[in-house]
């Protein structure tokens, strides 16, 4: 964390945001302001940490006490919930974590490649039907999943792809997440066109412009895409539930649901322990991804 803080500090000097502050001679008022700012942020952070803290505390509670204790006080921690949860299901929990990870990795690669390509075309190229196609792309995300999934399932079932990872990851390679295409279009449009023009004068084609100029400058948007793809795919329950039939292939959310019984006993301690555990990869992914977020044009020294 320290190195990251240092880098954040560097950013200030390059992007030099608070010009107003530089002019202010009195340092005292500034420091008090900064203190207030940190206090406000700390208070906000406590509010934001509470849900996670509650989850962690709950994961350490004795069986069933989750519903009797509402605060954060923990008198009798039970770390063995983790061991029990890890071994409670058909496969060790790591098996499901790896399944999820496989889906996530392919999804991220797919989204990064396919969405950035489509975005480049929409943002930087002229072609017949551009506006119409863009509109169609937006319309494609306006229908709720629950209506589209049945025809889509029939399609994949006809192709014999049910119970493979294909229905989960192939669409990502085909840029079906219009969210990210649109996101990258907006970011590409924020990249000054002079850069393209200069490169074109130097004889670069679209592929060269895309790979050598646009992509490096698109890193914050790519990082955003990677982070969101990770989180959304990781947390997705319905799609893997529908498409994966053998327990061998279940992802984490599907596995977590199988702790619960509607009419019989549920081992809540184990469920909470594994729920907390399954947040860990997402959080790590966010920590890594967010470092890339700060590497915008601002830090690449672009004029």
């Amino acid at each position: 964390m320290t190195t990251d803080t240092a880098r954040a500090g560097d950013v200030r000097t390059t992007s030099g945001p608070p010009p107003g502050e530089r002019r202010r001679p009195a340092d005292r008022g500034r420091r008090r302001k900064s203190l207030v700012k940190h206090l406000v942020l700390t208070a906000a952070c406590l509010l934001m940490i509470y849900p996670l803290a509650w989850m962690v505390v709950s994961s350490l509670r004795p069986e069933g006490e989750v519903f009797r204790q509402t605060g954060l006080l923990l008198t009798d921690p039970r770390p063995e919930n983790y061991e029990r949860g890890w071994n409670a299901l058909r496969y060790p929990f790591g098996h499901y974590l790896l399944n999820s990870l496989a889906v996530v990795v392919f999804s991220i690669v797919g989204n990064l490649v396919s969405c950035s390509m489509a975005a480049y075309a929409f943002a930087r190229q002229e072609f017949r039907g551009r506006k119409l196609l863009f509109a169609i792309m937006l319309v494609s995300i306006m229908l709720p999943l629950h209506v589209v999934i049945v025809p889509q399932y029939i399609l994949f079932s006809e192709l014999g792809w049910v119970n493979t990872l294909l229905p989960l990851v192939l669409p990502k390679f085909l840029a079906t997440d219009a969210f990210f295409v649109f996101l990258m279009v907006q970011f590409i449009r924020g990249i000054p066109r002079e850069l393209d023009e200069a490169a074109r004068i130097d004889g670069a084609g679209h592929v060269a412009i895309f790979t050598r100029i646009i992509l490096p400058l698109l890193v914050p948007a790519l990082a955003t895409t990677a982070i969101f793809t990770f989180i959304w795919t990781w947390n997705d329950f319905f799609t893997p539930l529908i498409y994966l039939t053998s327990p061998d292939a279940y992802t984490v959310p599907v596995a977590l649901r199988s702790f619960v019984d509607s009419q019989g006993a549920t081992s809540w301690g184990a469920l909470f322990a594994m729920s907390v555990l399954s947040l860990l990869p997402v959080f790590i992914a966010f920590l890594i991804g967010q470092r890339l977020l700060v590497r915008g044009i601002a830090t690449t020294g672009l004029k």
Partner: peptide, 9 residues
């Protein structure tokens, strides 16, 4: 945040 980072210094 990503958008803000994109504003040239």
């Amino acid at each position: 945040l990503a958008g803000l980072r994109q504003i040239p210094a």
